[in-house]
Write a protein that binds this DNA or RNA. Structure first.
Ligand SMILES: [Mn+2]
Ligand SMILES: [Mn+2]
Ligand SMILES: [Zn+2]
Ligand SMILES: [Zn+2]
Lengths: 152, 152
DNA sequence: CTGTAACTGATAATACTTTTCAATTAGCAG
DNA sequence: CTGCTAATTGAAAAGTATTATCAGTTACAG
């Protein structure tokens, strides 16, 4: 077991969760890759050394690890696609993680300027051709701060 | 038909698409709301004045309008959830819209500083309690710039 | 060891989106 | 105005992703 694995597994134990071979396998699949992996990709990776593991268990473990913030989950969990008019002007989003409400805002020129500069640097370093950027804030809207989240 | 509707419908015609009542209804549902609406919400809204419309048609129309960039689609279409180790340090993402590859990067202190300032302002203006932010660039990785996208 | 609550995996259920295809229709030519 | 035709629609089915149920198994505290 690699040290990076141990960090996570001991954290699991510390939180009172049992250390099953399945959970260890999922952790190892994640720590042993540089990439962001989809649940299915992780399942396939785990299945090699641990045939018979259920995809369900992979989902459960990922959810658990992400909740404990032991792994990085990409994309704000929110209900993914939603649509609105007025795509014309470049803008960004403030998303309520309670009810899903979205507020559009324009980011100040200063930030946009810095971001464009950063785009240039990242592009040079990574070889990506960068087309667009997205600045997104997540939090709780006024209503959801009071009431416990009422979901969409 | 509101002027904002007309903008979109004439654009549709200009691109050679037929102007069906269903499409007009979907466009109107979107332009007549301030919010970002999910496909289902749009379907329900349209169904009121246009019972019998198929959910399929709503999906088709949304896809069309988004492709023509006549409406704003929230969240980078990408295959939503993916996981990686090392959530400890705050970082951001560079995502390939061709193959889904994700590169992590730390944004420069200058940007983080500006963003925190912006958070304060947005919070005051909107009443949101802001918990986190996400800066995401989308583009094409080196491979996908050559080969036509090979999907995940 | 033993007991038990936590955990697993097969299955089913749910949810969301796309495909298929026969019937309908928008919009053009005449 | 017709009449034609390719585009479009909607019902149904299929595909895909995720979650719930539940009987059997297992990690681990005592
Ligand atoms: Mn928007
Ligand atoms: Mn990451
Ligand atoms: Zn809210
Ligand atoms: Zn790529």
């Amino acid at each position: 077991m690699k040290p990076s694995d141990r960090n996570i597994t001991t954290a699991l134990r510390r939180h009172g969760y049992k250390l099953t071979p399945q959970r260890c396998a999922v952790v190892h699949a994640i720590t042993s890759s540089q990439d962001h992996l989809t649940p299915t990709a992780i399942f396939e990776k785990v299945s090699q050394n641990h045939p018979g593991i259920g995809l369900v268990t992979v989902y459960r473990t990922l959810k658990l690890l992400a909740e404990l913030e032991l792994i990085c989950e990409l994309h704000t969990g929110g209900n993914c696609p939603s649509y609105t008019a007025g795509t014309s002007h470049h803008h960004h989003h403030l998303v309520c993680s309670g009810c899903g409400k979205v507020v559009d805002f324009a980011s100040p020129r200063l930030i946009e300027h810095n971001v464009v500069e950063l785009e240039g640097r990242l592009s040079r370093e990574s070889g990506f051709r960068i087309d667009d950027h997205l600045l997104e804030f997540t939090g709780l809207c006024q209503l959801c701060q009071k009431a416990p989240a009422s979901s969409v």
